[in-house]
């Protein structure tokens, strides 16, 4: 069995927290550039210019002051043994990255007493056991402005694809200008209450512009993107074509009585960095 020192995980996480918050991924850059080309309103184009200028200006200053909750997805190969605690290593990496990288500490220790923990820990750690002897880590800092606009519905099977479409559109309309459009929309369909939400979050890790391998859902992604970009909400909600940069759908089997549908909204600072150890 392969041995992996947990300190290597901490170092990698620290580095990824800083990179994710200062360098916008290529897929989002490309989507913004494309949106700018296709936008026709003067004010909307001006906002997209500002957003593009901003990601180019970032580093070492973060792209956005909301450097997010540190969402850390770890796929652990069954044939690797991690010496030391994985959770401790991830948290040590987050604390180091957020402190040394001048990133904002946005975590409170309790949802009601609201005292800041001071180092952006604990991370939100999502683990999964997979075949192999590698450890794949994705750090996806998630801002709250967009997270707060996310919703879930326990639809009925009879609602079908139309119900899903209506719920996603309704969620985007209700969010309006609040989540810093242009947004990226993660949709999770199926599973149960909690798995649908997790699917929606995982959908946001997929590159903008990529498609679900199933034809039904790939077509639904394209249709929803067109519908969302016909709402007129536009960049920052001030009117325009570019309301969303992408719609990513992930699905899983579900109960005969259920059609859970979760919509996790991300802003245009859609951050994700992956490394394999």
């Amino acid at each position: 069995m392969r041995e992996l020192d947990s300190r290597l995980i901490a170092e990698a996480v620290a580095d990824m927290c800083v990179r994710a918050n200062t360098v916008l991924p290529d897929d989002v850059r490309a989507a913004l550039d494309l949106a700018r080309r296709d936008e026709d309103g003067e004010a909307a184009r001006g906002i997209l210019d500002t957003i593009i200028e901003n990601y180019r200006a970032a580093g070492p200053v973060p792209i956005c002051q909301d450097t997010g909750l540190a969402c850390v997805f770890v796929e652990v190969g069954q044939d690797v043994h991690i010496s030391g605690s994985l959770a401790d290593a991830v948290n040590a990496g987050v604390a180091k990255g957020y402190t040394d990288g001048y990133l904002r500490k946005s975590v409170v220790r309790d949802p009601l007493d609201r005292v800041n923990t001071g180092d952006n820990t604990p991370a939100l750690l999502y683990t999964e056991l997979v075949p192999g002897d590698r450890v794949k880590i994705t750090v996806a800092p998630k801002g709250a402005g967009s997270e707060n606009m996310s919703r879930i519905a326990m639809l009925k099977p009879s609602d079908g694809i139309g119900g899903v479409r209506d719920f996603v559109l309704e969620t985007v309309r209700l969010a309006g200008p609040n989540p810093c459009p242009p947004i990226v929309v993660g949709v999770g369909i199926g599973g149960n209450f909690d798995k649908a939400a997790l699917l929606a979050k995982r959908a946001l890790l997929r590159p903008v512009g990529s498609h679900n391998p199933a034809e039904t859902y790939s077509a639904l992604e394209s249709e929803l993107l067109t519908l969302i970009n016909s709402t007129g909400i536009g960049p920052q909600g001030l009117g325009g074509r570019t309301t969303a940069l992408g719609v990513n759908i992930e699905t899983m089997p579900t109960h005969i009585a259920s059609l859970p549908c979760a919509v996790n909204i991300n802003c245009h600072v859609s951050r994700h960095v992956t490394e394999v150890l």
Binding site: Y55, P62, D66
Partner: peptide, 10 residues
């Protein structure tokens, strides 16, 4: 007033 959300570096 609205400022551009997500343009914190600028």
């Amino acid at each position: 007033f609205g400022a551009t959300g997500g343009a914190g570096a600028l």
